[in-house]
Nucleic acid binder design. Structure first.
Lengths: 327, 327
DNA sequence: GCAGGTTGTGAAAACGTTTTCATAAAGAAC
DNA sequence: GTTCTTTATGAAAACGTTTTCACAACCTGC
């Protein structure tokens, strides 16, 4: 049937141990190494990674658990994670949780069964708060969201500062009734909401915050409801790219001109945000950097399991466009 | 150290074989099954999937090889593939090739070493044309693109018809100098180009087609060059969503109003295409359907390896918006 | 010329499961 | 009551590698 290491050994005229050493790193003479390589070519041998993993206890596999790969933020991060993983000779198993704690639990169990080398995880708040430092049997780095302080390595945005910057800009433009629509499931949304509220209070303005599921349709529905009220906000901050899209839709539905009737600002500098007139003001997240930093932290954690927990905080960049220009 | 099936067996007072049967499907008495389940809970046992795969020769793993997960078309398809895979108890390994045949070859070799259950693959033209029916040691379904006729199962769009529909619409609107900018690496782009050219000829119009790398920046650069010429086209068809975005950017750069100075039509009904004024006319691809059909074909191929090769052709839906409305 | 490395190699154990084979017990058919 | 199935179980083999252990051959330093 299938050609195994024994066949290669027979063809090369050596033992299986020598073949294993020649293919991996081990002391073998140059002559033997060439013989083995020739035998591999001759037989078309392909190592069986399951057997290798079982014996060597090195899965060479990274788990990537995110809410939804269709969220462009996660798409971009995942690409950076995969590039780093494959560059290090590792595979990536991708999991979508849809912000559902039950699915998160299921995938975490799967990661255990796979005996993964490590995991990059964007947890919901409820899951993150339940995970103590020793809850997971594998090295884990949180991205975009953090959990209990000091429990896990993480790479996050300075969310409060970013939200604050948006408020600063809107207030400087003369907007006063600035509302905020934030996601309800992640620590990140909470931090953005807190940063927003704190900034508003600094200007002696009343924070007007609401929370919904962090997706486009939920945001659109809520925005339509909110903006139909007589005392509707004159500016709206959205806590991610999907929700920003929902808000744009809501403004269209209600016939509100941006920024004359409604100013809009949000997160995630997605390619389309500068194409929709008059351009959307957003906080740009360093998505590739988040992914690669997360992998760096993960690899360093794997090498030094007992080193202190680290949290890398990256700054967003405010990209100011027409959607927040004062009429 | 780690708890294995022997520990569970000892705690439950049965043999490892019985534990294995109780956990999988096998004839065991209800009493024993309960004992085993209790022992699993008591010990915190997690099966080692590498060992299971090695022995059972069932990897329960699907490989998904696409050009770039950041292309929203592939993002959406991948989500559908993953949903179907996890629903069937399988894992997904995701690979990005960047349209590079060398990386495609590398990932195909990886799939062999993983002994994957099957692969969903969007190959470049050069790789697809080199793959005969017996070139791959695992069941494979091509998506978005097809290879040698009858060599592999595939799920594709009726690309020629879709491109033709765009030409029909543009001509009906009164446009005559209709150009086409197509990707250079995939069979799909070729088919769209052919459909475009055939339709143009049907109207006694001269086809004006160019090919570039299928990404936003290459399309933008080429579009700027093309649209700067005195005899520039009055309408442009783009062969995917990224290129359509590049063309929108080019029009902005050159100060061309859409559709007055330039009509635009493309593929992929991405969420932003109706937000950028005056709305972009596109062919909507049934992305979720493509992913789930591909998985269906794959599973059926796994069950009946020798059944005839099948090709599922799905139709796109023309979404007509302002970008193609005549002056 | 000899003790003490170092280097290259093979035989066999080990990794943690599932599967095969054998067997005992229980039920069905006569 | 015998024989023939069927069902539930355990002992041991098997999956395809890597790693351990042992050892021989070759160096090095004196």
């Amino acid at each position: 049937m299938s050609v195994g290491i024994r066949d290669v050994a027979r063809v090369a005229g050596v033992s299986t141990a020598t073949v294993s050493r020649a293919l991996g790193r081990g002391p073998v003479s140059d002559a033997v190494r060439e013989q083995v390589e020739a035998a591999v070519r001759a037989t078309g041998y392909r190592p069986n990674l399951s057997a290798r993993r079982l014996r060597s206890k090195a899965a060479q596999t990274i788990g990537l658990i995110v809410a939804d790969i269709r969220n462009p933020f996660f798409t971009a991060v995942s690409r950076a994670v995969e590039d780093a993983a494959y560059a290090a000779g590792m595979r990536v198993i991708l999991c979508n949780t849809d912000e559902d704690p039950a699915r998160e639990a299921m995938y975490l169990r799967l990661m255990e069964e796979e005996r993964v080398t490590g995991v990059i995880f964007a947890p919901t708040k409820v899951t993150a708060d339940g995970l103590r430092a020793d809850s997971l049997s594998f090295p884990t780095v949180f991205i975009d969201r953090s959990g209990l302080p000091g429990a896990h390595d993480s790479v996050v945005l300075d969310n409060a500062a970013a939200a604050s910057a948006l408020v600063d800009h809107l207030v400087a433009q003369g907007f006063k009734r600035v509302g905020g629509l934030f996601g309800s499931t992640s620590s990140t949304a909470r931090e953005r909401q807190a940063g927003y509220a704190a900034a508003m209070l600094r200007y002696d303005l009343a924070p007007l915050a609401r929370s919904v599921a962090p997706n486009a349709t939920a945001a659109e529905t809520e925005a339509v409801r909110w903006l139909s009220q007589p005392d509707r906000p004159e500016a709206l901050i959205l806590s991610n790219g999907l929700m920003l899209m929902g808000a744009v839709r809501a403004a269209r539905t209600l016939g509100l001109a941006v920024p004359r009737d409604l100013a809009l600002a949000g997160f995630d500098n997605e390619p389309w945000t500068d194409l929709v007139e008059p351009g959307l003001t957003v906080i740009e997240q360093p998505v590739a950097e988040i992914g690669s930093q997360a992998m760096r932290l993960l690899f360093e954690r794997i090498e030094q399991p007992s080193q202190p927990v680290r949290k890398v905080t990256l700054s967003g960049r405010a990209v100011l466009r027409g959607s927040t220009r004062r009429g």
